[in-house]
Design a protein around this nucleic acid. Structure first.
Length: 420
DNA sequence: TCTGGGGTCCTAGGACCC
DNA sequence: TCTGGGGTCCTAGGACCC
């Protein structure tokens, strides 16, 4: 029997955070709005009971909210991040193993706690509530997918007291019988439709399907889901989640943007924000993407969406370099005559300066190593310590300098850069 | 006038190499 | 003119999550 896994999920997290700092909101229908107060991104139970939908646009629901007494809050991500850290600290101190999965969720490894699991987790739940004011639900099962199921049922069933274990097949069967296919973690509308076409319409049917047969019709992802539903864990606890691969800064505009000047200003702001994030995490990027898109809800207007990838001459987190790159991208993707709704920049293929130096050093020959270190030093001296760490375009695999033709090309590129 | 902002993983297919 | 097998790398697109 695999060691049990618990999933702890904060109930209506953003709405709960607002309540901690404004106790008068307790017991009332509360919703939290997205950036620009665009749409609903969190709802208290009372708001859910009134039929407020996730993602409901505020401008279409304003009057209704007022009538129903729904209290509206703009989002405050600094506050939520801080509350999340407090919750996670308590959880981390209470169990041997934790994987922080999102701002409001964590998986806990319960090896060694099997015999007093239920009591222990109920205590944890009470502690979190007492110390932070945030209510959580906890699901326990042999696999992550089943822990998600357990959590969902725990949240819906007052009699569980917020904690539910699904360790036996009988318990799992009873729980799965209460759910729809799209209630499962990793299964949404598209896959539901394809499963229906194969005659699978319930979670129990999916669990009882042959994993190999499923693999043939879908991919390894769906095969894993079946195995996980059968109680065979395919996804371990990720103790130290990998560093970010991409950083994105993206915003919808309050009103349509129609001039290149205005767009350049917006994108320069976004890339600056991304650069700041990168520097805080000591990351650099060798390439970035710029996306522009019109308002898809305006069917009466001409639609356009474009993307351009800019390979930077060096991997960097330097704001002025990144702005230059991003503005180049904007001019490539800009088409005159559209009313743009949203712009995004994505920094790709992120790596830390130290990691890149280490990889290069490790994979190069001795003479190349010397050249490499000298080059890095020279570049860093020139552009400032830590801001520049690598000088070649391409992906991380291309970063290895080897003595074949391809690496010769990169070395040449490197030398070119030094000559600038 | 007004409809979020982040992320991840997998697959298929083409270019290119030996 | 014929035209395999094995591999890597890269990109685009699809699907999903919180």
């Amino acid at each position: 029997m695999p060691a049990p896994i618990a999933l702890v999920d904060c109930n209506n997290f953003y709405a709960s955070c607002e309540r901690v700092f404004q106790p008068a909101l307790r017991g009332k229908p509360v919703v939290v709005l997205s950036n620009n107060d665009g749409c609903v991104i969190a709802r208290s139970n009372e708001a859910k009971a009134l039929g407020v939908e996730m993602g409901a646009p505020w401008h279409l629901n304003r009057d209704r909210f007022e009538e129903q007494g729904v209290i509206v809050r703009s989002s405050n991500y600094t506050l939520y991040g801080d509350m999340s850290a407090r919750v996670m600290r308590i959880l981390g101190e209470s169990v041997p193993e934790i994987e922080i999965y999102s701002i409001d969720e964590a998986f806990l490894g319960l090896a060694g706690l099997e015999t007093r699991m239920d009591t222990h987790l109920r205590q944890i739940r009470a502690t979190v509530l007492r110390w932070t004011g945030i209510p959580v639900s906890i699901g326990i099962a042999p696999s992550k997918t089943l822990a998600k199921v357990a959590n969902r049922i725990a949240k819906k069933s007052p009699e569980s007291g917020g904690v539910l274990a699904l360790m036996t097949e009988a318990e799992q069967t009873a729980a799965l019988a209460r759910l729809e296919l799209t209630d499962l973690w990793g299964l949404a509308r598209r896959m539901e439709a394809r499963l229906h076409a194969l005659g699978i319409t319930t979670p129990l049917q999916l669990r009882d399907a042959d994993p190999k047969w499923i693999r043939g019709h879908f991919s390894v992802v769906m095969e894993r889901m079946v195995l996980e539903l059968q109680g065979e864990p395919c996804m371990g606890l990720d103790h130290q989640p990998a560093a970010r691969q991409t950083i994105m800064a993206s915003r919808s505009f309050g009103r349509p943007v129609e001039t290149l000047d205005e767009m350049e200003e917006a994108v320069a702001t976004y890339i600056s924000r991304a650069a700041e994030k990168m520097r805080r995490q000591n990351l650099v990027t060798p390439a970035l993407q710029v996306f522009l898109i019109t308002n898809r809800f305006r069917e009466d207007e001409p639609q356009y969406s474009g993307q351009h990838t800019v390979h930077l001459p060096i991997a960097t987190a330097d704001t002025s370099r990144l702005i230059r790159g991003a503005l180049h991208g904007v001019r490539q993707v800009w088409r005159e005559g559209y009313r743009y709704k949203k712009a995004s920049v994505v920094c790709l293929d992120l790596h830390s300066a130290e990691q890149i130096q280490g990889t290069l050093f490790h994979q190069a020959d001795a003479p190349e190593r010397r050249q490499l270190m000298a080059s890095l030093d020279a570049i860093n001296q020139r552009f400032g310590r830590g801001t520049v760490s690598f000088a070649a375009s391409g992906t991380r695999k291309a970063w290895a300098l080897r003595s074949d033709q391809r690496s010769a090309a990169y070395t040449t590129r490197w030398n070119e850069l030094l000559a600038v």
